[in-house]
Structures are given as structure tokens and as C-alpha cells.
Design a protein around this nucleic acid. Structure first.
Lengths: 208, 208
DNA sequence: TCATCCAGTTAACAACTGTTCTCTGGAATT
DNA sequence: AATTCCAGAGAACAGTTGTTAACTGGATGA
């Protein structure tokens, strides 16, 4: 049973979301550490002081953006890795899925790539924690595969991190190619596919 | 025969270098897009207007920092990849070399990791161009290896990019572990070693 | 119905920003 | 020795910033 929010709470959440959306748009052309509080309130169309009703600082807003950008991604990642079919099919599906995600949420992807090593410590920390969770989820899925027989937990996590990092690199490349001709995007897809293929081969022959 | 600079030019270069050093120090706790011109001149100890004698803008200063941080790295990368010995020795040496570089130039590494996807377009472009050069140099070295027989140019470049990205990821992990206990840094070294090992295995079995 | 709450407003603060123009004094050139 | 050059200084500009305090008025709960 879902609880219907009061008019007041609903309006507050609406404004909060407007803050997140406006910030995400502004962050396409700058980093979080240069994002001003007044800049955001101006974009939302609200008084500067209203900001404090929702966030302590822009860093706090950034952490909220991390949750929005990565929080909803967990189920997708899990189903991607656990997809059935042979190795080649799974690679093609993963690349396709990354491309679609970048198309659907370019600002989210840009934000994560930009702030992962950005100048705001709490945000870096939040991203690091979420990516750690991703890696552990991927590891759990990898462990189910019969190919994982004889793999140590450490090695599975090592491979999971390799996949997660590769996912981010690929997403970033698709992002750069967003406004480029289809041919360029296809080139990125081919590159990512072959890199995943090479990793997959390394995985198969691991305990040589 | 080296040309001795006049007193004037020498002093100018000295001040310019002071700008680069001060900026790099300030950028440990923020991004380039939030770095103020006055902030830098204050750190150097000169008047704000002196900045314009050396750079058009902070973005321009950022591009100069890219050259300083990556320009001197080319010979090192080349010799690393072309190092003789079996695969395992080369991996160990590469990881060791990355760790030492992070120890020696942590601010450079932080700057590149931060601004590679940062909010200043000309700087992103400069980093992208340099990394492209790195990849092509690595590719040229890979091509010399007898193991590269039967590899297409495209596949060699694909593998080279994989190595370059992996190098950056590893450097970034070492950076995070800079002030951590030696045990943590060893964990990073082990992780990077095994990831490179897996890639190396994939490379060996590539045209399966 | 009435008192309470609280998201958003208004006004004001000192401090800071990038950029301009004018000036200075020592190096470089003739 | 006289002239030109030019890195850096100084002062002033209109705008911007984050944060504070006291307020308003509609939703909320007794």
C-alpha cells in the first residue's frame, strides 16, 4: 500500500527534483566544484535561500545526484550480466544496452564520469561506494556461471572491477560520440565489443 | 649549442612556472572550472593582471598543464612497453613504474584523471589528443612483438587503448592509496597485476 | 475553527570575481 | 647614451558569490 503524500510534501519533492534537473543541465558545461548555489536557484526560478530547504550545500546536492544517476542502475546491470546465451551474444547485448543508456540519460553519464575523479570529496566517495556495489553485484553474477569454477573470490572481484571500469569507459566514449554521425558511434561499438571479447578470452583461459 | 636566455626571458619563464606549480597545488582540492585567476595570482604572490602576461584564461593555463603532465611521459611509456623479458616480468615492471610515477608526481596524475572528463572543453581535448598519441606509440611497440603476427592495425590499436586506459585506472587507484598503509598499496598492485595478466592471456589466445 | 508548521520570499551583508586602463622601472636594442 | 620594450603593479569597474535574519501565507493537525 503506497502512502499518498500531502500537498505540502508533494510540492517540496517537486521543487527538489527541479533542483536536481537544473543542476544536471548546468553541469554539462562545468564541474560540480564550480556550480554556484545562486546559479541553480536562478535556473529553477526560485529565491537563493530556498536552496537551504533542500540541501546543505552544492556538495550535498551532488551526492543526491549520484543516487539518482546510479541508484536506479543496479537492476539493469544485474540483468545484463546474468543474460543467457553464449559469450558473443552477451557482449553484443551489453554494448547495445550501454549505448541505449547513454542515449536515454546522457547528463547522468556525463555527471558520473566527470565527478568520479572530480574536485568534491563527498561526491567522489559516494560514486566510489556505488561502483564498489556494482562490482560486487557483477561478481555475484559471475560466480553463478559454470565458467567461474576454480576462481577465487579475489579473482572474481578483480574481473568484476575490470568489467565495471570497461562499462564506464565505453559509456564515456558513446557520450563523446552522441552528436557525431552514426558511423562514429558504430566505431565505438566495434571497439568496445572487441575489448570485451579480449577480456572474455582471457577469462576463459585464466587458470592456464 | 644551447642558447642562453636573456635575464628578462628567464625571469618570465620562472614566473610562468610558478603559475603552473601554484595552480597544480590549488587543483588538488578543486576542479579547473572553479579555479579563479585571482586565486592563482594570490598563491604566486603577484598582481592579478600579471596573469594575462602568460595566459589568456585559466583554460589556457590548463592546456599548458596537460603538456607538462603528459608531455614528458612519452619516452617512459615507450620504454616500458618495449621492455624485454617474458610477459610476467613486463607486467611487474609496468605496475612498479606506474606506482613510482604516482609517488613522484601525484599532482600531475590527479590533474589528468580529474580533467580528462572535466568541465573545460579545451583541456579535455588536449588530454584526449595526448592519450591518442600514447595509444599509437603503444600500438607501434606492440607491432614489433612476434606475438602481434596476424593482428590487424585496428585490433592492435584496440589493445593499445585497453592498455592506456588500464594504466590510468591503475594510476588513479595508486593515487587514492597514496596516504594509505603500505598494505593497501600492495593490494592495488596485486589487483593491477592480475588485470594486466588477464588481458595478456586474452591477447595470447586472440585469434582463436 | 484556530494555532502551528514550514517551503519559499525579501532584503541586506561583506567578500569575492574577471577585465579595463594607466603607470613604472629595469632589461634590451640601437 | 638614448630609445624602445614589456613583465608586473596599482586602482577602479560592475557583477557575482554564500549566508544571515526576519517575513508571509497556505497546508496541516488539534
Amino acid at each position: 500500500m503506497s502512502h499518498t503524500l500531502g500537498i505540502r510534501q508533494a510540492q517540496k519533492q517537486k521543487t527538489r527534483q527541479a533542483f536536481l534537473d537544473a543542476a544536471l543541465a548546468l553541469l554539462e558545461e562545468q564541474s560540480l566544484s564550480s556550480l554556484g548555489l545562486r546559479e541553480v536557484t536562478r535556473a529553477v526560478g526560485v529565491a537563493p535561500t530556498a536552496f537551504y530547504r533542500h540541501f546543505r550545500s552544492t556538495a550535498d546536492l551532488g551526492v543526491a545526484l549520484v543516487d539518482e544517476a546510479l541508484g536506479s542502475l543496479h537492476p539493469m546491470v544485474r540483468t545484463t550480466v546474468s543474460t543467457t546465451g553464449d559469450s558473443e551474444e552477451r557482449i553484443a547485448r551489453a554494448v547495445e544496452l550501454i549505448a541505449r543508456h547513454v542515449d536515454a540519460y546522457p547528463a547522468h553519464v556525463r555527471f558520473i564520469a566527470r565527478e568520479r575523479h572530480g574536485g568534491v570529496q563527498p561526491v567522489r566517495e559516494a560514486i566510489r561506494a556505488q561502483l564498489q556495489r556494482f562490482a560486487e553485484e557483477v561478481k555475484a553474477e559471475l560466480a553463478k556461471d559454470p565458467e567461474a569454477a576454480g576462481w577465487s573470490d579475489d579473482d572474481l572481484l578483480m574481473l568484476a572491477h575490470l568489467y565495471v571500469d570497461q562499462m564506464l569507459i565505453t559509456a564515456s566514449l558513446f557520450l563523446e560520440a552522441l552528436e557525431a554521425p552514426a558511423q562514429e558511434r558504430e566505431r565505438v561499438a566495434q571497439l568496445a565489443t572487441r575489448q570485451l571479447r579480449l577480456i572474455s578470452i582471457g577469462r576463459t583461459h585464466w587458470p592456464d
